[in-house]
Design a binder for these strands. Sequence first.
DNA 1: GCCTGGATTGTCT
DNA 2: GACAATCCAGGCA
Length: 195
Amino acid sequence: MWSAICSADVRALSRRWFAADAPVVAPTLLGKLVVAGGCIARITEVEAYMPEDPASHSFRGLTARNTVMFGAPGHLYVYFTYGMHYCANVTTGAIGSGQAVLLRAVTPVSGRDVMVARRNGRERHIADGPGKLCQALAIGPLDNGVDVCHRGSAVWLADDGTPPPEAAIVTPRIGIRHAVDVPWRWLAPSTTGEA
DNA sequence: GCCTGGATTGTCT
DNA sequence: GACAATCCAGGCA
């Protein structure tokens, strides 16, 4: 698989891919690949966050932490939460719009052993949560702001031709305390549960 | 400068 | 199923 990533039939997603609003971009990312930490994983769950959304970090405007969210689309926004976990987002929309798509879960495609090792040897639930995803793919604060449209980046998103699932499951977002009824969470149907 | 809440996870019962 | 762990950002005085 790694050789495939290095070949021409797997290409980085273009900047234009992320130019639309987060709720539009989010479902299109299902099935796409994340290349990070020497591993490749397929996206199975995402959530959209908009600036008018009380659950979004950009709701209160530009701050030192969320600067990346207000920057150009197609960049990685990594933030620290609950005192011990990192979450990875990809910025979308126009510059200054403060939108992002949270990467909630992936399944290993290549480098599974490495991901398991990073997850302290856990064979199950390798990356079925935002914090676990960052741990398995070694995504951290140093990756905040990297360009995911560039193959040479520490973290980038790729398209290997796999189409998004035709019947993605749409649900309200979870783990948040504001705007809990907004259906901006998308899951690949065959990958619910164990990742 | 202090206080509070948080886009979570792992462990224990 | 319930709860503790853990620490930073942001709000407020």
